[in-house]
Simulated scan of single mutants.
Amino acid sequence: MLRLAELGFDAPTALLARYGLALQRVDGGAPIPGSFWGDEEAGIIGTTVYARADTPLHSLLHEACHLIVMPPDRRLDVHTNATDSIEEEDATCYLQIVLADAFPGVGRQRLMADMDAWGYTFRLGSTRAWFENDAAEARTFLTLRGLI
């Protein structure tokens, strides 16, 4: 599982900034503010994504994409739990895969493998099968909003 310690914080910080988001580095061992899953998983509060060096890239991208897919006027009110919408959750998963291509040496194939290893579950059994064969609504959602 690719963690920020291997990738560094510069590229994710730049990517998030393109969407008006900030990445806040959290000291090792400290609790991550706004983390839904706890442990090393990324957190969100407002327009800030929180992560440590041991945070998996898929987790950082997932939480950031929650903020990216939601209307900007809702972002400031977000704390820990971004949505209960299946439509937004699917769009978030799809976009995090697409955005993985922004990182040299990472790409969507690596991210999908990490998502499977972490335990994401999809009807077709794998992240790749969902992305390639069952994500039309997510693609449409993102296309209509100009995000892909």
Rank of each mutant, 00 (worst) to 15 (best):
A138Y: 08
T83L: 07
Y94S: 06
Y19R: 06
A117H: 03
D27W: 00
S59V: 05
G34W: 01
L142C: 09
D116I: 09
L61K: 08
A113P: 00
P56L: 01
T140A: 15
E88K: 04
P104S: 11
A14T: 09
L67A: 15
D39W: 05
D54T: 10
M112N: 05
H66A: 01
L67F: 02
R75N: 04
I97M: 09
A53R: 14
D54W: 00
Y50D: 08
R145A: 13
R3E: 14
R75L: 03
Y50E: 02
H66R: 01
L67K: 03
E88W: 03
F36G: 00
F9P: 04
D77Y: 12
E40C: 11
G34E: 06
G119C: 12
S35C: 04
T143Q: 15
F131T: 07
A22D: 15
G20F: 11
G38E: 06
M1L: 12
P33H: 08
A64Y: 03
P72I: 06
L4M: 10
T143N: 13
H62Q: 13
E88T: 02
L61P: 11
A51Q: 02
R110N: 07
D134A: 15
I45C: 11
L23R: 08
R139I: 02
E63M: 11
T80N: 07
R75W: 04
L76I: 05
R25P: 15
L57P: 06
A138H: 12
N133R: 15
T48G: 10
R110K: 11
A82H: 03
A30G: 00
V106Y: 02
I86D: 10
Y120L: 04
L15F: 11
D27N: 13
F122G: 02
A22T: 15
L147T: 03
E40I: 09
S85G: 14
D54M: 05
F36M: 13
P31K: 09
I86G: 06
T55S: 06
R128V: 07
G46D: 06
S85K: 13
F103R: 04
T92G: 01
G119N: 08
L4T: 01
E137G: 08
C65V: 12
D116M: 05
P31I: 11
F141Q: 01
L57F: 00
L124I: 04
E40Y: 01
V106L: 13
C93Q: 14
E6C: 00
G107T: 04
P72E: 12
R123N: 14
A91K: 12
P71C: 05
A5S: 10
T140M: 10
N133V: 00
A100Q: 08
H62G: 01
A42F: 02
V69A: 14
M1G: 14
A51R: 05
D73A: 07
V69K: 11
G107Q: 03
I32P: 08
H79P: 00
L23C: 13
C93D: 15
F36W: 11
R145Q: 12
A22C: 09
A11W: 07
A138W: 02
V49E: 02
V49S: 04
H58V: 11
